[in-house]
Design a protein around this nucleic acid. Sequence first.
DNA 1: GTCTATATGTAGATAGAC
DNA 2: GTCTATCTACATATAGAC
Lengths: 244, 244
Amino acid sequence: MYQAKTDLGTRQRRPSRRAQETRRAIFAAAEALFAERGFDGTSTRDIAAKAAVTPALVSFHGGTKQALFEAVVQARASELSAAREAALAELMAAQPRPPLRAILAAFIRPLMARATGPDPGWRAYARLIAMISADPQWRALTARCFDPTVARFSQVIAASCPRAAPEHLAAGLVFSVAAMLALITSTWRIDALADSANGIAAENDSGNQLDRTEALICYAEAGMLALLGQGAAPSQASARPLVG
Amino acid sequence: MYQAKTDLGTRQRRPSRRAQETRRAIFAAAEALFAERGFDGTSTRDIAAKAAVTPALVSFHGGTKQALFEAVVQARASELSAAREAALAELMAAQPRPPLRAILAAFIRPLMARATGPDPGWRAYARLIAMISADPQWRALTARCFDPTVARFSQVIAASCPRAAPEHLAAGLVFSVAAMLALITSTWRIDALADSANGIAAENDSGNQLDRTEALICYAEAGMLALLGQGAAPSQASARPLVG
DNA sequence: GTCTATATGTAGATAGAC
DNA sequence: GTCTATCTACATATAGAC
């Protein structure tokens, strides 16, 4: 058996510094490999090799492969959710019904800033949650980690847009989250498309990432406003009703 | 070795009816299982069991596991691309610079109609391409299967919106494709969010799917128009520039 | 074309020495 | 806590009989 991580019923010795470092190395290796190859594509032996420990230590510190995976996902999810909720709280302290764009930014920026920042752990983590979001195998996990915060943002938007149909609000949020995750996994595709349109003049490849986050916010805001039926009238060919 | 599927250099006997049926069963089983569990999560034995044949026949008809996977993905990709190109051609026969909404619909509807139609093969296939789109392992495959058509749509949009920056057009297309795939994989999440917002009054669960496709087109059109800088001015809090 | 049988490798997990 | 050694199961792929 492996060490139960939340066994409050029995006294446990405080882990030594070396043990903590081993544990940290295992989780970091697992995070990177799971993000790169997925759950089934990663073996516990790969994780052990990357962490420079023996396979037995992966079981000891991480438990089963599935428990290790879920622990990796949940670890940073807490910090991310806290950052999103803090951004939302700050927003609502200033005004009780903030504009949609600001609400979306409070949801999107905490992840995108980390995904494009210097911490390779966060970059891997962002790819990881993008991969599991499309995988039915991890529905329960993603729901547990992210849905409470999404639901809170949904409520705030609903309060700001009382006329919005719940179904359209839900769809718009899911679309926007998908677009955000695509910005994490598919930068290469945006580059390829833009380059093929540009001829071959591949200009400044870097420095686009943050601009693209703002482009994403712009896109998501307009898309959701159209769905929620509040202004943002499409410019042409659109005396058409919202649906149909 | 297994039977080369495109070996034009050597004479091949026409396959018997039974062999064709075996081959069809193997590909159908592979399609369903790959969509459900992913590439690494599916074993060739699982495929053989689902197709009710022996494992050796999977190797014989499908080649290596990877070759079988790529063949499964490419098979329906051709039909899908043809349907998209046909819809686009019909559009441009009517007017050389069609409205953005119609262009997006020509891209989105061929897949969504099949994904929500009666053919379980297409439903599985839609989930399959949604899963591999986020996976770096299949970049080359997805690029080969889908990028040519996406590039053609991109050119048509660019012609209709000459002032659009190529980077914004590329980003908007990738965002829109991601939203479309999310509508395939994450219907459950839209339902859950909408239900939690509705209290518990889970009304008509069915019949939403086609409406949601139209909602997606509405969302994507507005989002892209905002990105391309053609009208669709965000309603409030947006004297802000497009980027930054 | 299809089957049985098997070669060959790797997976996850743990027992028990240190 | 960490290691070595190993158990058991399952993976992909192929050889060769029919």
